[in-house]
Design a binder for these strands. Structure first.
Length: 218
DNA sequence: CTCCCGATAT
DNA sequence: ATATCAGGAG
């Protein structure tokens, strides 16, 4: 496991690599962000943005999503994948926003997590990006990077990864760290061909050193 | 744990 | 062909 000093080194190097890391989901208000993050499950941001470009022109309010049939909404988001669940969840979510929150998106993580299709990760993203609340959303990239570097254990659940990160990263850096880890995972420490040979974190990365050793042997 | 699921990279 | 993508619900 990495010690405090090594983790500090990782965070600083990630900042150098991605000084402008930020949310890459196109949105202009909290409601659009909730929809975008819900759609982003098991799907790339690039594809989500492609779909929401037209979607957000057609649907501005919760009422708009409820004034069409489920089939029509499914069709409008079909290329995203998992579209049946996502369309159903969007309409459920819109009903609750109108019934319980006056059509507005709640700002607390606890309230967000009650919404259909919104789990812990999505709630963390919305609370952090839309409302400035400190949070570390653990998605596939944050999980992979944390485990490869040795910030947490391989067998840890996403919740355990989040707890570890909250403990080891200063609270005022949670949101930026979360975004830097996503960029690092998305563009450098990729799932398939991580660029270990040109990685500034190699000296502290257990997985990177293992991969380099294997590469030299072959 | 399984299922949902199309687009893209490799 | 197959793995992967800002996961969540049952």
């Amino acid at each position: 496991m990495l010690n405090k000093k090594q983790i500090r080194f990782c965070l600083d190097e990630m900042e150098k690599m991605f000084p402008n890391a930020d949310c890459e989901l196109t949105h202009s208000n909290p409601f659009e962000l909730v929809i975008a993050v819900l759609l982003s499950a098991q799907c790339t941001d690039v594809l989500v943005n492609k779909v929401t470009k037209d979607l957000f022109k057609k649907y501005k309010t919760p009422e708009d999503y409820l004034n069409v049939s489920l089939e029509e909404l499914q069709n409008d988001i079909r290329s995203i994948g998992l579209y049946r669940n996502k369309a159903k969840n969007i309409q459920k979510l819109c009903n609750v926003l109108l019934d319980e929150y006056g059509g507005e998106v709640p700002s607390s993580k606890a309230e967000l997590e009650k919404l259909a299709g919104v789990g812990r990760k999505t709630a963390n993203v919305v609370a952090s990006v839309a409302f400035g609340e400190p949070a570390i959303a653990v998605d596939t990239h944050v999980e992979r990077v944390s485990k490869r570097l040795g910030i947490c254990r391989w067998k840890d659940s996403v919740l355990e990864v989040e707890k570890t990160l909250m403990k080891k990263v200063p609270k005022n850096e949670w949101s930026v760290t979360h975004h830097r880890m996503i960029f690092f995972g998305r563009y450098h420490c990729k799932a398939k061909n991580p660029n270990c040979s040109e990685c500034p974190l190699l000296e502290v990365c257990r997985e990177g050193q293992k991969r380099m050793k294997k590469e030299n042997a072959s």
